[in-house]
Design a protein around this nucleic acid. Structure first.
Length: 428
RNA sequence: UCCUCGGUAGCUCAGCGGUAGAGCGGUCGGCUGUUAACCGACGGGUCGGGGGUUCGAAUCCCUCCCGGGGAGCCA
């Protein structure tokens, strides 16, 4: 058995393919089959004169998405969509499909999402998911090459880490438990054990968000590094994003072509990235006519307007402490500001990274927990990191669906994950 | 939760007070180089549910249900 991907190297040879029929065009005594096997698409030419009567009858009976086994000779031909085609010698129908729901014409997104398990077969969907697979591998390689240790953080977590309103609740032998919305609190102790650590896994948010930029279940990668200061964190985020983009450009050019992605915009995403402070960002937005005051967080439109000012991802730093998480280290030059970092992707894809230097002083962290009205008891194990050999450290989180959406030029996050979990929708 | 748009054939939609329509898909037939092939024929409907107005409702009104897009929140 051969794979379609390798056919250009087998011109003149006889091959056997197993795959699915995407489409067939018949013209009387000759028919053109578009065959897909997961590695690519190829055209097979069936000529009545060159086939047995039973094989020709099988060709006549073929339906969309039937499973077939074809035998034939590979040749180059400019009339074939892929430049290569197979001249059929034999064909066997392994399974005759009836009434495949996704037809050649257009469908609405609601219908396609209902049939997500079948929609995966389309060339655009599989291209996007192949990019996602490459990004996942690149994330692991990036950390592995830099001596990070993978720490799998738990998915089932106990009470209340950052407020329960956005957590999925579940029963844990009579106790309340929640699905994880971040691995960070578990990474910080591990950073004291291994120095450089990261986690990469699914994350759950029960927010009733209904936009193209939100999923209830998404995958997040979170590095956490001991003795890394804020400047170093910004450098790491920049190196990480440019590494991933370069990797996709290098290895997924065919998929980006299928997705009709303008890669010139991705090629710009090289170091250094512009860096501006929150305060500068507010001033810039005000200059551009946005009604926003210092101290407010950015909305989705603000992020888009801001990112449009730059030709590559932009780092926004030093946010007001008041609008950021309890664990973020204050700026030593101005305690009203946090050593916090967001990376905004270009072209309106919004925030792809959020991170900070962490508070390492025990007394300050306890005070912050109280100010945020969080239960001190639940955080004792987390505070132990500050009790026993505390150390400055920093980390960030990147949602890979947003990254993949940007790289692929997809408007909606639902196409960047095989089976999206969306508001009130958990099928298929 | 709020704002907004929508629900008519398997799919995508038109029709917006007077006999339910088209394209695609399906079935049958034709065609030896098709490119979401093309040509001819055929089948296909509780017009989201309920209530109301009217001689008459897919069409107007009320109400409920379901879906798309967006806001807030965030990655």
């Amino acid at each position: 058995m051969h794979r379609i991907k390798e056919l250009p190297t087998r011109i003149g040879e006889e091959v056997v393919l197993l795959g699915w029929l995407m489409n067939v065009r018949s013209s009387g005594k000759i028919a053109f089959l578009q065959i897909r096997d997961g590695s690519g698409v190829v055209q097979a030419v069936a000529s009545r004169a060159e086939l047995s009567e039973s094989a020709w009858q099988d060709v006549q009976s073929l339906t969309q998405e039937s499973t077939i086994r074809v035998t034939g000779t590979v040749s180059q031909d400019p009339r074939s969509p892929s430049g290569v085609e197979i001249h059929l010698k034999d064909l066997a129908v392994e399974h005759l499909t009836e009434d495949f729901p996704i037809t050649k014409k257009e469908h609405g997104t609601g219908f396609l999402m209902e049939h997500r398990h079948l929609w995966l077969r389309s060339s655009r969907q599989s291209a996007a998911l192949r990019v996602r697979s490459e990004v996942s591998q690149a994330i692991r390689d990036f950390h592995y090459e830099r001596d990070f240790v993978l720490i799998d953080s738990p998915i089932l977590t106990p009470a209340a880490c950052e407020g329960t309103s956005t957590l999925f609740e579940t029963d844990y032998f009579g106790e309340q438990a929640y699905l994880s919305q971040s691995g960070q609190l578990y990474l910080e102790p591990a950073a004291a054990a291994f120095g450089k650590v990261y986690c990469f896994g699914p994350t759950f948010r029960a927010e009733k968000s209904k936009t193209r930029r939100h999923l209830m279940e998404f995958w997040m990668v979170e590095p956490e590094v001991a003795f890394l200061d804020f400047e170093g964190l910004c450098d790491l985020a920049e190196e990480f994003v440019s590494y991933l983009v370069a990797r996709v450009l290098d290895r997924c050019s065919e998929d980006l072509k299928v997705l009709e992605r303008d890669t010139s915009k991705l090629e710009m995403a090289t170091s250094p990235f512009p860096r501006i402070t929150y305060t500068q960002a507010i001033e810039k937005l005000q200059d551009l006519g946005t009604v926003i005051e210092w101290g407010e967080d950015f909305g989705g439109d603000d992020e888009t307007v801001l990112a449009e000012q730059f030709d590559r991802p932009v780092l926004v730093t030093h946010y007001p402490t008041a609008i950021k998480a309890f664990y973020m280290e204050p700026d030593p030059e101005n305690p009203d500001l946090a050593l916090a970092l967001d990376v905004l992707a270009p072209e309106g894809y919004g925030e792809i990274i959020g991170g900070s230097q962490r508070i390492h002083d025990l007394a300050l962290l306890e005070r912050r927990l109280e100010e945020h009205e969080l239960p001190l008891e639940a955080f004792q194990w987390y505070l132990d990191v500050r009790r026993f050999g505390t150390f400055p450290h920093s980390g960030f989180g990147m949602g890979i669906e947003r990254f993949v959406a940007w790289v692929c030029g997809l408007k909606h996050l639902r196409e960047t994950i095989p089976y999206p979990r969306m508001l009130n929708k958990i099928y298929p």
